[in-house]
Design a binder for these strands. Structure first.
Length: 273
DNA sequence: GCATTACCCTGAAAGC
DNA sequence: TGCTTTCAGGGTAATG
Protein backbone atom coordinates (compact mmCIF):
# COMPACT_ATOMS: atom_id res chain seq x y z
CA UNK A 1 0.00 0.00 0.00
CA UNK A 2 2.25 2.76 -1.17
CA UNK A 3 1.84 6.05 0.69
CA UNK A 4 4.04 9.13 0.66
CA UNK A 5 7.19 7.58 2.25
CA UNK A 6 7.10 4.69 -0.21
CA UNK A 7 6.72 7.06 -3.18
CA UNK A 8 9.52 9.28 -1.84
CA UNK A 9 11.74 6.18 -1.52
CA UNK A 10 10.90 5.21 -5.08
CA UNK A 11 11.52 8.73 -6.41
CA UNK A 12 14.99 8.80 -4.80
CA UNK A 13 15.88 5.43 -6.33
CA UNK A 14 14.59 6.35 -9.77
CA UNK A 15 16.49 9.67 -9.80
CA UNK A 16 19.72 7.73 -9.60
CA UNK A 17 18.96 5.64 -12.70
CA UNK A 18 16.46 7.44 -14.94
CA UNK A 19 17.57 11.07 -15.27
CA UNK A 20 18.73 11.74 -18.83
CA UNK A 21 17.13 8.64 -20.34
CA UNK A 22 15.10 8.96 -23.53
CA UNK A 23 11.87 6.95 -23.92
CA UNK A 24 12.18 4.76 -27.01
CA UNK A 25 8.85 2.96 -26.75
CA UNK A 26 5.92 2.05 -24.50
CA UNK A 27 4.09 -1.28 -24.45
CA UNK A 28 0.71 -1.53 -22.68
CA UNK A 29 -1.33 -4.56 -21.58
CA UNK A 30 -4.52 -2.95 -22.90
CA UNK A 31 -6.34 -3.43 -19.59
CA UNK A 32 -7.67 -0.30 -17.88
CA UNK A 33 -6.20 0.85 -14.57
CA UNK A 34 -8.20 3.15 -12.26
CA UNK A 35 -9.35 4.62 -15.56
CA UNK A 36 -8.44 3.58 -19.12
CA UNK A 37 -4.97 4.69 -20.24
CA UNK A 38 -5.24 7.45 -22.86
CA UNK A 39 -4.57 6.22 -26.44
CA UNK A 40 -2.12 9.10 -26.86
CA UNK A 41 -0.11 8.16 -23.73
CA UNK A 42 2.68 6.23 -25.53
CA UNK A 43 3.02 8.90 -28.22
CA UNK A 44 3.32 11.65 -25.59
CA UNK A 45 6.29 9.85 -23.96
CA UNK A 46 8.08 8.53 -27.05
CA UNK A 47 11.22 10.50 -27.94
CA UNK A 48 11.14 12.58 -24.75
CA UNK A 49 13.94 12.68 -22.18
CA UNK A 50 13.49 12.49 -18.38
CA UNK A 51 14.89 15.69 -16.85
CA UNK A 52 13.53 15.64 -13.29
CA UNK A 53 11.71 13.24 -10.95
CA UNK A 54 9.43 14.82 -8.36
CA UNK A 55 6.90 13.62 -5.81
CA UNK A 56 3.58 15.31 -5.12
CA UNK A 57 1.54 13.54 -2.44
CA UNK A 58 1.43 9.91 -3.56
CA UNK A 59 2.14 10.81 -7.20
CA UNK A 60 5.45 10.36 -8.97
CA UNK A 61 5.91 13.17 -11.47
CA UNK A 62 8.53 12.85 -14.21
CA UNK A 63 9.37 16.11 -15.94
CA UNK A 64 10.17 15.50 -19.60
CA UNK A 65 11.88 17.41 -22.39
CA UNK A 66 10.47 18.65 -24.75
CA UNK A 67 7.97 20.11 -22.26
CA UNK A 68 5.64 17.44 -20.81
CA UNK A 69 4.90 15.62 -17.56
CA UNK A 70 4.46 11.91 -16.99
CA UNK A 71 2.54 11.01 -13.82
CA UNK A 72 2.40 7.66 -12.04
CA UNK A 73 0.14 6.69 -9.13
CA UNK A 74 0.59 3.20 -7.68
CA UNK A 75 -2.90 2.86 -6.21
CA UNK A 76 -2.85 0.00 -3.72
CA UNK A 77 -0.77 -2.66 -5.38
CA UNK A 78 1.26 -0.83 -8.04
CA UNK A 79 4.99 -1.53 -8.38
CA UNK A 80 7.68 0.11 -10.48
CA UNK A 81 10.67 -2.03 -11.36
CA UNK A 82 13.81 -0.95 -13.18
CA UNK A 83 15.70 -3.47 -15.29
CA UNK A 84 19.11 -2.91 -16.80
CA UNK A 85 19.06 -6.27 -18.62
CA UNK A 86 16.54 -7.97 -20.91
CA UNK A 87 14.08 -10.45 -19.41
CA UNK A 88 10.52 -11.73 -19.25
CA UNK A 89 7.70 -9.60 -17.83
CA UNK A 90 5.94 -10.92 -14.73
CA UNK A 91 2.19 -11.38 -14.44
CA UNK A 92 0.08 -8.19 -14.06
CA UNK A 93 2.60 -6.03 -15.90
CA UNK A 94 0.45 -3.32 -17.48
CA UNK A 95 3.12 -1.11 -18.99
CA UNK A 96 6.75 -1.48 -20.06
CA UNK A 97 8.74 1.66 -20.82
CA UNK A 98 11.76 1.01 -23.03
CA UNK A 99 14.62 3.50 -23.03
CA UNK A 100 17.06 4.23 -25.84
CA UNK A 101 19.94 2.58 -23.90
CA UNK A 102 18.01 -0.75 -23.82
CA UNK A 103 17.09 -0.47 -20.13
CA UNK A 104 13.41 -0.54 -19.17
CA UNK A 105 10.88 0.29 -16.48
CA UNK A 106 7.96 -2.04 -15.68
CA UNK A 107 4.65 -1.04 -14.12
CA UNK A 108 2.93 -3.94 -12.32
CA UNK A 109 -0.42 -3.62 -10.57
CA UNK A 110 -2.57 -6.67 -9.85
CA UNK A 111 -5.50 -4.70 -8.42
CA UNK A 112 -5.33 -2.06 -11.16
CA UNK A 113 -6.15 0.90 -8.88
CA UNK A 114 -3.15 2.86 -10.18
CA UNK A 115 -2.89 5.60 -12.79
CA UNK A 116 -0.58 6.36 -15.72
CA UNK A 117 -0.95 9.59 -17.68
CA UNK A 118 1.01 12.20 -19.60
CA UNK A 119 0.28 15.90 -20.05
CA UNK A 120 1.83 18.25 -22.58
CA UNK A 121 1.68 21.31 -20.32
CA UNK A 122 4.23 23.88 -19.19
CA UNK A 123 3.63 23.91 -15.44
CA UNK A 124 3.07 21.08 -12.98
CA UNK A 125 -0.03 22.82 -11.60
CA UNK A 126 -1.73 22.47 -14.96
CA UNK A 127 -2.03 18.73 -14.27
CA UNK A 128 -5.53 18.28 -12.78
CA UNK A 129 -4.58 15.39 -10.48
CA UNK A 130 -1.69 17.41 -9.05
CA UNK A 131 -3.47 20.76 -8.90
CA UNK A 132 -6.26 19.37 -6.71
CA UNK A 133 -3.83 18.01 -4.08
CA UNK A 134 -3.62 19.59 -0.64
CA UNK A 135 -0.51 20.73 1.23
CA UNK A 136 2.62 18.58 1.44
CA UNK A 137 3.01 17.71 5.14
CA UNK A 138 6.79 18.03 4.96
CA UNK A 139 6.67 21.55 3.48
CA UNK A 140 7.49 24.50 5.79
CA UNK A 141 3.96 25.84 5.16
CA UNK A 142 2.49 22.90 7.07
CA UNK A 143 2.16 24.11 10.66
CA UNK A 144 -0.39 24.67 13.44
CA UNK A 145 -1.33 28.10 12.03
CA UNK A 146 -2.28 26.50 8.72
CA UNK A 147 -3.98 23.42 10.15
CA UNK A 148 -5.97 24.75 13.11
CA UNK A 149 -8.44 26.98 11.18
CA UNK A 150 -9.06 24.15 8.71
CA UNK A 151 -9.82 21.71 11.54
CA UNK A 152 -12.17 24.20 13.16
CA UNK A 153 -14.22 24.43 9.95
CA UNK A 154 -14.62 20.66 9.56
CA UNK A 155 -17.24 18.37 11.10
CA UNK A 156 -15.45 15.30 9.70
CA UNK A 157 -13.75 12.80 11.98
CA UNK A 158 -10.02 13.47 12.16
CA UNK A 159 -9.05 10.14 10.56
CA UNK A 160 -11.08 10.88 7.40
CA UNK A 161 -9.62 14.39 7.37
CA UNK A 162 -6.06 13.00 7.37
CA UNK A 163 -6.88 10.63 4.49
CA UNK A 164 -8.36 13.42 2.32
CA UNK A 165 -5.66 14.08 -0.30
CA UNK A 166 -7.25 17.43 -1.17
CA UNK A 167 -6.42 18.66 2.33
CA UNK A 168 -3.09 16.96 3.19
CA UNK A 169 -1.39 15.06 0.38
CA UNK A 170 0.42 11.85 1.17
CA UNK A 171 -1.11 10.11 4.19
CA UNK A 172 -2.80 6.73 3.76
CA UNK A 173 -4.40 4.37 6.22
CA UNK A 174 -1.21 3.00 7.78
CA UNK A 175 0.39 6.35 8.56
CA UNK A 176 -2.91 8.03 9.57
CA UNK A 177 -3.32 5.35 12.28
CA UNK A 178 0.29 5.78 13.43
CA UNK A 179 0.03 9.59 13.43
CA UNK A 180 -3.12 9.60 15.59
CA UNK A 181 -1.52 7.17 18.05
CA UNK A 182 1.57 9.36 18.38
CA UNK A 183 -0.59 12.48 18.78
CA UNK A 184 -2.80 10.66 21.35
CA UNK A 185 -5.97 11.54 19.43
CA UNK A 186 -8.80 9.04 18.91
CA UNK A 187 -9.56 8.48 15.19
CA UNK A 188 -13.26 9.24 15.67
CA UNK A 189 -12.75 12.71 17.16
CA UNK A 190 -14.51 15.45 15.16
CA UNK A 191 -11.98 17.89 13.75
CA UNK A 192 -13.58 21.01 15.23
CA UNK A 193 -13.20 19.60 18.76
CA UNK A 194 -9.38 19.47 18.57
CA UNK A 195 -7.62 22.01 20.79
CA UNK A 196 -4.64 24.16 19.65
CA UNK A 197 -2.39 21.95 21.77
CA UNK A 198 -3.71 18.77 20.13
CA UNK A 199 -3.22 20.41 16.73
CA UNK A 200 0.44 21.04 17.55
CA UNK A 201 0.79 17.38 18.58
CA UNK A 202 -0.87 16.35 15.32
CA UNK A 203 1.48 18.46 13.17
CA UNK A 204 4.55 17.07 14.94
CA UNK A 205 3.22 13.51 14.78
CA UNK A 206 2.60 13.74 11.03
CA UNK A 207 6.12 15.01 10.38
CA UNK A 208 7.76 12.52 12.75
CA UNK A 209 5.91 9.47 11.43
CA UNK A 210 6.59 10.35 7.78
CA UNK A 211 10.26 11.22 8.32
CA UNK A 212 10.86 8.00 10.26
CA UNK A 213 9.21 5.98 7.48
CA UNK A 214 11.28 7.70 4.79
CA UNK A 215 14.48 7.02 6.76
CA UNK A 216 13.52 3.32 6.77
CA UNK A 217 12.67 3.31 3.05
CA UNK A 218 8.92 2.82 3.52
CA UNK A 219 6.69 0.12 4.98
CA UNK A 220 6.44 -3.32 3.37
CA UNK A 221 3.81 -5.88 4.25
CA UNK A 222 3.27 -7.95 1.14
CA UNK A 223 3.18 -5.25 -1.50
CA UNK A 224 5.68 -2.43 -1.46
CA UNK A 225 9.16 -2.77 -2.88
CA UNK A 226 11.43 -0.18 -4.42
CA UNK A 227 12.52 -0.12 -8.07
CA UNK A 228 15.24 -2.70 -7.36
CA UNK A 229 12.71 -5.06 -5.78
CA UNK A 230 13.89 -4.40 -2.19
CA UNK A 231 11.28 -4.16 0.60
CA UNK A 232 11.26 -1.26 3.09
CA UNK A 233 11.91 -1.68 6.81
CA UNK A 234 9.46 0.70 8.45
CA UNK A 235 6.99 -2.09 9.34
CA UNK A 236 9.27 -2.66 12.37
CA UNK A 237 8.42 0.85 13.62
CA UNK A 238 4.61 0.54 13.49
CA UNK A 239 2.97 0.88 16.90
CA UNK A 240 -0.73 0.31 16.22
CA UNK A 241 -1.35 -0.64 12.59
CA UNK A 242 -2.33 -4.33 12.28
CA UNK A 243 -1.59 -4.84 16.00
CA UNK A 244 -5.17 -5.57 17.08
CA UNK A 245 -5.24 -7.38 20.46
CA UNK A 246 -1.54 -6.77 21.11
CA UNK A 247 -0.44 -4.58 24.01
CA UNK A 248 -0.10 -0.82 23.55
CA UNK A 249 3.61 0.11 23.67
CA UNK A 250 2.74 3.03 26.00
CA UNK A 251 0.15 1.71 28.47
CA UNK A 252 -0.09 -2.07 27.74
CA UNK A 253 -3.87 -1.86 27.06
CA UNK A 254 -4.96 -3.98 24.07
CA UNK A 255 -4.92 -2.23 20.68
CA UNK A 256 -8.41 -2.02 19.21
CA UNK A 257 -9.66 -2.04 15.67
CA UNK A 258 -12.76 -0.42 14.22
CA UNK A 259 -14.26 0.27 10.79
CA UNK A 260 -14.30 3.89 9.74
CA UNK A 261 -15.56 4.72 6.28
CA UNK A 262 -14.67 1.28 4.88
CA UNK A 263 -11.13 1.49 6.30
CA UNK A 264 -9.76 -0.20 9.42
CA UNK A 265 -8.63 2.08 12.20
CA UNK A 266 -6.22 0.72 14.84
CA UNK A 267 -5.96 2.64 18.11
CA UNK A 268 -5.48 2.48 21.87
CA UNK A 269 -8.69 3.54 23.61
CA UNK A 270 -6.72 4.25 26.78
CA UNK A 271 -4.00 6.51 25.30
CA UNK A 272 -6.01 8.13 22.53
CA UNK A 273 -8.77 10.54 23.56
C1' DG B 1 -20.83 22.78 -0.07
C1' DC B 2 -19.84 19.16 2.77
C1' DA B 3 -20.02 14.36 4.56
C1' DT B 4 -20.87 9.63 3.74
C1' DT B 5 -21.28 5.46 1.05
C1' DA B 6 -20.51 2.31 -2.76
C1' DC B 7 -17.67 0.77 -6.12
C1' DC B 8 -13.64 -0.65 -8.82
C1' DC B 9 -10.04 -4.92 -8.47
C1' DT B 10 -7.58 -9.50 -7.26
C1' DG B 11 -4.90 -12.41 -4.10
C1' DA B 12 -4.83 -14.25 0.42
C1' DA B 13 -7.07 -15.96 4.26
C1' DA B 14 -10.96 -17.77 6.50
C1' DG B 15 -14.96 -20.56 6.54
C1' DC B 16 -17.46 -24.51 5.26
C1' DT C 1 -9.01 -31.21 -0.32
C1' DG C 2 -11.44 -27.91 -2.74
C1' DC C 3 -14.82 -24.55 -3.31
C1' DT C 4 -16.97 -20.11 -1.76
C1' DT C 5 -16.95 -15.97 0.80
C1' DT C 6 -14.77 -12.17 2.99
C1' DC C 7 -11.36 -8.80 3.45
C1' DA C 8 -7.80 -5.43 2.28
C1' DG C 9 -7.78 -0.11 0.76
C1' DG C 10 -6.81 4.73 -2.75
C1' DG C 11 -9.48 7.50 -5.18
C1' DT C 12 -13.77 9.05 -6.99
C1' DA C 13 -18.64 9.18 -8.43
C1' DA C 14 -23.01 9.04 -6.56
C1' DT C 15 -25.97 9.96 -2.89
C1' DG C 16 -27.71 12.21 1.24
Amino acid sequence: MPEMPEIETLARKLRSVLIGKRVAGVRLSGLPLRRPIDDQFPAKLRGRTIRQILRRGKYLVLKLEPQAFWIIHLGMSGKILYHAAAGECANHTHAVFHFSDSTRLEYRDFRRFGLLAAYEVRRINEIPEINSLGIDPLSPMFCRKWLFPLLQKSRQDVKSFLLDQHKIAGLGNIYACEVLFLARIKPTRRCYTLTPLETVRLVHAIRDVLRLAIRHRGTSFSDFMDSDGNPGENQNNLRVFQREGKNCVRCRAPIQRMKQGNRSSFFCSHCQR
